[in-house]
Design a binder for these strands. Structure first.
Lengths: 246, 246
DNA sequence: ATCTTCCTTTTTGTATACCAGAATGAGACA
DNA sequence: TGTCTCATTCTGGTATACAAAAAGGAAGAT
């Protein structure tokens, strides 16, 4: 039961398990993540749990609070706006680089995934389509040839997966990926930017549309902030100034 | 002085200490980071050390290897190229947003730092100038108003500090920061991009100039990647490895 | 002399137990 | 009703132990 699959360490297994549970909505936003409980749940000691929680915190899926339990992150509309904003810069860059640097092999790998995505979408397999969509972006990042970009892509991948999990109409996504693939294939470095931005924008619209419908009930506090400013959570985050001293 | 009272946890203290030692070159690239030894060195148990190492690995300052010791990261020219590439997208976005979203208060805070940088540079205080330069970028990121951008900026900050530590002529940097500040102040969203790119480029030139070639081999893969050259000259001598450990 | 193979050492990964201190939550008190 | 106090709950950290994996070296084979 615990020896599920190809995982090299307990920490990794735990991290993967928790991440999936959070993204799949099994762990509700705002719910407590208590180390001892998780340790018993997953049949390991507190050590791997601690490391997993730290990792997931860095991926933005859990909200740690000093000296107390962590919680499953509650994404606000402003969080999502920030994410889309960042994505619009990073993805453009990634695709432009990929269009320049792809090779025969990497391109055919990408084509396979695009095809798979289209098939899944056509026959209504949301889970498969989502996986293909995530794979597509991951492979494009790899093709970009920039190791740091891959790293950042990995950091953002959980959030991206979360975004994808928020809307179920994946057919547009698959088609747009197909168009993006074509642009990469013909090395259309100049034209790919607008395609990427359109892709993000249309994806964004579907998020909002879908999001407003499933308005989750406040787990604790109805922290509704229509403004751009974040009200709560000013405590964590590295203190910017602090060490000034001089 | 160095260890100001602002450290909240052992892990944080350890992380800061190790990070500084690595960036300042006290810990040589490639040297071993053994948990038990570090624990004794820094007078703590293995747990904070482990967490610090994990953190620093995510910041790209240490290279972890499964089931063995970590090492201080050896930056290759390709690593630096990747970093500059990412930075050129990241910083442009950051500054464009900052130019749009700054307020009276944040602007004056920024001005203070710019002034400080100029003063330090003028009187040849490299350490102070470097700190001011790092602060400048950090504050601009904050002004951008995008929490995720701040997060990514934090992740990249160690690498940026490392870059800064590689060249000692900080007067250009301070002056360019002053120019960037002006552009932000006058909300010159259209014109700031070229300024940022120039800033990065000139900084990059000084890096190369100062940076003696110390390469390592890129991951074993035949570079089917003709566009891009990262000047591989021969060498890759049996690197110094952990000659010292002192 | 160089390449394998085997064995010892080193070091991490994980478990377990325990403690101090901070945050929480509930009850006492004004 | 509000706030103060205090027990409880958790985390952050220490210490210790042990299995498993990698590294390093030595013996043996070619």
């Amino acid at each position: 039961m615990k020896t599920s699959a190809s995982a090299r360490s307990e920490t990794e297994r735990v991290t993967t398990a928790l991440r999936d549970e959070i993204i799949d909505g099994i762990r509700k936003p705002g719910s407590r993540l208590v180390e001892r409980d998780l340790a018993m749940d997953l049949g390991v000691s507190r050590v791997p749990i601690r490391e997993a929680l730290k990792q997931l915190a860095s991926e933005g899926l859990v909200t740690p609070r000093p000296n107390t339990w962590s919680t499953v992150r509650e994404f606000t509309t402003s969080d999502i706006a920030d994410l889309n904003e960042v994505l619009s810069a990073f993805e453009v860059m990634t695709f432009e680089l990929a269009a320049q640097r792809h090779t025969r092999e990497t391109l055919s790998e990408l084509e396979t995934v695009v095809r798979r995505g289209l098939e899944f979408a056509e026959r209504g397999d949301a889970i498969g389509a989502r996986r293909a969509a995530a794979d597509f972006h991951e492979i494009v990042t790899k093709i970009s040839g920039n190791a740091l970009l891959v790293e950042i892509g990995g950091l953002l991948s959980s959030r991206k997966r979360w975004l994808l999990s928020q809307h179920d109409d994946l057919s547009h996504v698959a088609e747009e990926h197909s168009g993006l693939f074509d642009a990469i294939a013909r090395r259309d470095v100049g034209g790919i930017k607008s395609l990427v931005l359109e892709h993000l924008e249309s994806s964004q619209k579907r998020q909002i549309q879908h999001n407003e419908l499933k308005h989750r009930e406040p787990p604790a506090e109805p922290a509704d902030d229509p403004e751009r400013f974040r009200d709560d959570d000013e405590s964590d985050f590295e203190n910017i100034e602090e060490t000034a001293a001089s």
